[in-house]
């Protein structure tokens, strides 16, 4: 294992359909660090995460994962991606079957689940506390449990970096605290975390630092408490203030 940082992106410019979304964005995650990516709706958080994972092309800049440039990066098992649980709709696959996909990073095509895969899978499910829900259909789980199942899927490949897209979205408050505790435990075990968040909330004690995106630019990498950008960038603010109760423009 090299000492290279899990993630180092510099001077990224990303446009989608000619529309500039990210401008001169640099972000890095050291090993063992938990970094929050904050920002309001439309700030470019999701675009940045997708770009860092190679799901979207970028026009300028560099992305390095574990010291290797993104276009040539091969060790994808070292990156565990956890999307929002609402992005997954399956008819009746079980929790274990969903999580087993994570092992594909280590398996060649045409190769079925081996003993090593099964051990890693069971360990991951136990770590997230779903060992007694393994054979349940994914769809019958609560939001928090679904999120845990997707974390188990990412963990089963034994990654060194976990990239999560709003892990607390659609999860009830009680489960949010439990999830934050789990992520803190993973960080203590040496996993680097990059977590997209709407607000720090329950994740606050877990985070080493935060990066705030505002209108496609990084606005604050130094002062983790400053959150003044996000409310200003709500789309409605350009037209006036929306009364939160009536929904009427003031």
């Amino acid at each position: 294992m090299t000492a290279a940082d899990p993630l180092d992106a510099r001077g990224l410019y990303v446009s989608i359909g000619g529309m500039p979304i990210l401008r001169d964005v640099s972000i890095h995650v050291d090993s063992g660090e938990a970094v929050a990516l904050l920002g309001g709706n439309g700030s470019g958080k999701s675009t940045l995460v997708k770009t860092l994972l190679g799901l979207l092309p970028y026009q300028k800049g560099t992305v390095e994962l574990f010291g290797e440039h993104l276009p040539g990066f091969k060790d994808w098992w070292r990156v565990g991606y956890v999307p929002q649980h609402s992005a997954i709709s399956v008819a009746n696959a079980t929790v274990r079957e969903i999580a087993a996909s994570g092992r594909l990073a280590h398996r060649r095509p045409f190769q079925w689940l081996g003993r090593k895969d099964k051990v890693a899978l069971d360990e991951a499910l136990e770590l997230v506390g779903l060992q007694d829900r393994m054979k349940w259909p994914f769809g019958s789980l609560s939001g928090g449990q679904k999120q845990r199942a997707l974390i188990a899927r990412a963990l089963s490949s034994h990654p060194d970096l976990l990239v999560m897209d709003e892990p607390l979205a659609g999860v009830d408050l009680h489960s949010q605290a439990g999830l934050a505790q789990l992520l803190g435990q993973l960080r203590d075990d040496g996993l680097a975390l990059l977590v997209v968040l709407h607000e720090r909330g329950y994740m606050n004690p877990v985070l080493s630092r935060s990066v705030t995106l505002c209108d496609g630019r990084i606005v604050d990498d130094e002062h983790p408490s400053a959150m003044d950008c996000a409310p200003d960038m709500e789309p409605a603010s350009a037209f006036g203030v929306v009364d939160p109760i009536s929904g009427v423009l003031a």
């Binding site: 997708k50 994972l53 190679g54 799901l55 091969k74 994808w76 098992w77 990156v79 991606y81 999307p83 992005a87 997954i88 399956v90 696959a93 079957e97 969903i98 087993a100 996909s101 994570g102 594909l104 990073a105 398996r107 095509p109 079925w112 689940l113 899927r153 490949s157």
Partner: peptide
């Protein structure tokens, strides 16, 4: 297993390589 992973979640499957 691969076709299943792709049909459930294309983005995740792509990040797996």
């Amino acid at each position: 297993p691969r076709l299943f992973a792709v049909s459930v979640d294309e983005n995740y499957a792509q990040v797996l390589g």
